[in-house]
């Protein structure tokens, strides 16, 4: 590939103006104070005969972290992917920053939202630094390299030591740190995390959880986190949303869930996880 490492070829500059609007809106306290950063309303998604989302409604307040918990196949990931237009709902509304997702150019929208998946999804043929610089580079920002270095520093990977490495030369935990750095390098208001620590061993996981918690607190970024680990949810999230079979069973602060489970399933889930 002949394109420069940190700057896009001119013809690939995508119009990202739409989403800059979003940041502007979110920053305006007068108009948007209390407006949820993410909102799903009566969202339905079907795959053939299977109902993945059954009239799900969820608000994520600006700056907060909501954890989506539930068994695999309960619809957590599908709901998460509605917010960056990777999944298009069959019915209902999905808003980001008070604006319907459908009204955004999906490519521009995605460049404004951080995303971390379980496998990390690093591009194996790109260096660590180039991976982290992906979003600023896609947006055509001159200082993509600087931003990437700063993001690497923030996740505890000195760019001088790690920047030139290939993803395959890193440990699993380091790779997930890089993935988080990549999600943050574009300074998004919102970050979507799909089982970000799911593939790691217990020690690395709790280490990474802690640093993510601090990071998030420091940056004030709105987070939606998919996990099947209730301990993780309790530790990281301001609110927990329990899903089962495509439906939302209960949403509430961890302590509310523990004291007043709205549903037998929630109670059972808490008990099984040993959280209660």
């Amino acid at each position: 590939m002949t394109a420069g490492r940190d700057s896009p070829a001119p013809n690939e500059r995508e119009p990202s103006a739409h989403f800059d609007d979003l940041s502007a809106h979110v920053d305006e306290p007068a108009a948007h104070l209390g407006e949820p950063a993410l909102r799903a309303h009566e969202v339905v998604k079907r795959y053939g005969a299977t109902i993945a989302l059954d009239r799900v409604s969820l608000d994520v307040a600006q700056g907060s972290c909501v954890a989506l918990v539930g068994e695999s196949g309960s619809g957590k990931t599908t709901l998460l992917r509605c917010f960056n237009a990777m999944v298009r709902p069959d019915a209902g509304f999905v808003d980001v920053g008070g604006r319907p997702v459908a009204s955004f150019d999906p490519v521009a929208l995605r460049r404004g939202i951080g995303y971390v998946q379980q496998e990390g999804g690093l591009l194996p043929h790109w260096s660590v630094l180039r991976n982290v610089a992906l979003v600023p580079w896609l947006r055509g920002e001159e200082d993509a390299g600087e931003r990437a270095r700063a993001a690497l520093d923030r996740v505890g990977l000195p760019p001088s030591r790690f920047g030139d490495r290939w993803p395959r030369d890193l440990s699993g935990g380091q790779r997930q740190r890089v993935a988080i750095a990549r999600a943050l390098a574009g300074s998004p208001e919102i970050i979507l995390l799909d089982e970000p620590f799911g593939a790691l061993d217990a020690i690395t996981r709790s280490e990474l959880r802690r640093s993510f918690h601090n990071l998030r607190a420091g940056m004030g970024v709105t987070s939606l986190l998919v996990t099947h680990d209730l301990h993780e949810a309790v530790e990281l999230a301001d609110e927990i949303a329990v899903m089962k079979g495509g439906a939302l069973m209960q949403v509430g602060r961890p302590e509310d869930l523990l004291s007043a489970p709205a549903h037998g399933y929630v109670e059972e889930l808490l008990k099984r996880a040993g959280v209660g």
């Binding site: 690939e12 992917r81 490519v107 995605r110 995303y115 194996p124 896609l138």
Partner: peptide
């Protein structure tokens, strides 16, 4: 590499 492709798409590659 489906994971890499998915992540790159979700982060805004055309």
């Amino acid at each position: 590499n489906p994971a890499a492709v998915d992540a790159a798409r979700a982060l805004g590659m055309t």
